[in-house]
Design a protein around this nucleic acid. Structure first.
Length: 282
DNA sequence: TGCCAGGCCGAAA
DNA sequence: TTTCGGCATGGC
């Protein structure tokens, strides 16, 4: 990884498998918007950042220090995704999925933001998830200016916990509102502790987070992967079954294991973008 | 207009 | 343990 500093941005080269488009649009996060020039602007960890692809790497707004402090980890740039991707592509289906999703990096998002976002995601479509999260931030987050535009941070659990269901009605997120409120209150009162969850093994953490109201198996798996960076989330057996629903092919079980969550993301993105595996009509 | 969406809860079987 | 109706809302 080679870093070159410029006045208000840096360029990182020597990065295999990075695509801002695939990373920000694959469905793992909801706060990065594609710009007319193909770059992405988003907010994470209370900062606005602009990212675009360049030859053999990426360009990112800010300084080298900010990159080292926040964005290097956020973008998971020190993991060898090329090797992981190649290890996944063991048959026609996995080869297609891995090639389709090439460049996905699993973002190391803020724990709370990920949990809250995936609570909102349940039985919802991606444009509306994005819309609800945007409204949540605009109404309850802190304003930050960037390149003459207003952006908003993701509201803290303390802020959300101080609100009422009436306050949250503006989100129009229906039955999910009490789940959001309860999750925020659990954090404030200490019954939900992300540091403790991080230290648990994945099955234990899954069991624990599922005691939270509104967090079932699916939201739990998304939170474990995108919010706690547990790359073995999305249990092998469950996800292989799901993959077979998406695609009428065989999965190589030996390809799974340590990086099941990353493999899942290739499959999900591939399936969704190609209209594979949509729910049959009732 | 109607189906569906990165589901979950709680009751009934 | 599994099944199933109900749940809020809006994108398409």
């Amino acid at each position: 990884m080679l870093i070159k500093e410029f006045e208000d941005y840096i360029e990182i080269t020597g990065v295999d498998d990075f695509s801002s488009k695939h990373t920000f649009l694959c469905g793992q996060c909801f706060r990065f918007d594609e710009q007319k020039d193909g770059s992405f602007i988003g907010v994470a960890f209370d900062k606005v950042v602009k990212i675009c692809d360049i030859e053999d790497g990426l360009r990112i707004s800010g300084t080298r220090a900010e990159f080292n402090k926040t964005w290097k980890n956020f973008l998971d740039l020190e993991r060898d995704y090329a090797s992981i991707r190649k290890s996944f592509a063991t048959d026609e289906f996995t080869k297609n999925a891995a090639e389709f999703g090439r460049g996905i990096r699993l973002l190391q998002q803020d724990h709370w933001e990920a949990l809250c976002s995936f609570i909102i995601s349940q039985c919802n479509n991606i444009p509306r998830i994005r819309s609800i999260v945007r409204t949540l931030c605009k109404n309850f987050g802190q304003k930050i200016e960037f390149e003459g535009q207003d952006y908003f941070t993701f509201p803290s659990p303390q802020k959300i916990a101080s609100l009422t269901l009436e306050d949250l009605a503006i989100l129009k997120c229906g039955y999910r509102a009490p789940y959001i409120l309860e999750a925020a209150k659990s954090i404030v009162n200490g019954t939900l502790d992300f540091e403790m969850l991080s230290q648990m093994d994945t099955p234990t953490a899954r069991k624990s987070i599922m005691t939270q109201k509104g967090v079932g198996a699916k939201v739990a798996d998304c939170f474990l992967l995108f919010g706690l960076y547990k790359y073995d989330a999305f249990p092998k057996d469950t996800w292989m079954k799901k993959a077979k629903e998406f695609y009428d092919g065989e999965m190589d079980e030996t390809a799974y294991g340590k990086y099941a969550g990353i493999y899942q993301q290739y499959i999900f993105y591939y399936a969704r973008e190609n209209g594979i595996g949509t729910k049959p009509k009732k």
